[in-house]
Design a protein around this nucleic acid. Structure first.
Lengths: 135, 135
DNA sequence: ATGATACTTAAAGTTAACTTTAACTTTAAG
DNA sequence: CTTAAAGTTAAAGTTAACTTTAAGTATCAT
């Protein structure tokens, strides 16, 4: 079963394998991200990890950041190390600065995508021409 | 000096360090790509690598593909292994198929970029709200 | 209460993509 | 001709991001 609902009906909890299945990554990867300080789920009385919707959203953001090419260290700088002992105000300001920088990078990335698309179109045309020559 | 022009004035050649500087990667990286079969430059009488504008274009495509998240193996499948002994017609057809698939991936990637941007906007709003609360 | 299944940790292993090193050769400048 | 800078190879080393393993603990269904 996917997730558990508590008495209020608004809080939903996931086990590590549950969440892993939802995000299509392995439980070990989730633990690895925790070791890196990117998430810090609560634990049950028996010491097993419990994830909230918030944790899941954070993980989704991590995964998206990765697809776009960011390293885990860069992502940590954007979203802040989970539960770091650091002064919160300072931490947030650092995160905001990194986020602003990422907006610019996203724009660059869009431009790069168009250039790549153009390159591939050229390559395709070249290959098709070569194919005809081979007939 | 950057590049050398031959008697016809249309062919331009680059040394490995020259090309590396232009592309802002290291000479070793270029040699590494060659080991992987992605490029195969001509050699001088003394066995030194000589790169043409065409080689440079190929390298640029490799670098762009990488930024967009493709692995070197995937890139090799798109652009074809340089100077592979394989049947050329077959090779070109395989490349064309991979290129078509990449067009779709580029679209997916664009969508992902927008989602990431939205995620970051939400995160930014959250962090700003939290900053105000801390005052 | 008893398995089967899922969880825990710490540590070692893997893979891709480079980078560095060592020992040697080629090339360009004086 | 000499020498410094740049090039060559093969092999070893590095780093990030996981994955696997081992040995033990917790939870759930019967």
């Amino acid at each position: 079963m996917t997730g558990t609902t508590d008495k209020t009906g608004t809080e939903e909890y996931f086990s590590i394998s549950d969440l892993a299945a939802q995000l299509e990554i392995s439980p070990s990867t989730i633990r690895f991200y925790e070791d890196k300080g990117l998430i810090s789920p609560k634990r049950t009385a028996g010491n097993q990890r419990v994830y909230t919707r918030k944790d899941r959203a954070r993980l989704k953001l991590i995964i998206r950041g990765k697809r776009f090419g960011a390293s885990l260290d860069e992502i940590a700088e954007m979203i802040g190390k989970a539960g770091s002992g650091m002064d919160e105000k300072k931490q947030i300001e650092i995160s905001l600065a990194h986020i602003e920088a990422k907006f610019d990078e996203i724009e660059d990335h869009r431009r790069e995508l168009s250039l790549l698309e153009q390159d591939l179109k050229n390559l395709k045309a070249l290959l098709k021409k070569r194919l005809k020559e081979l007939r």
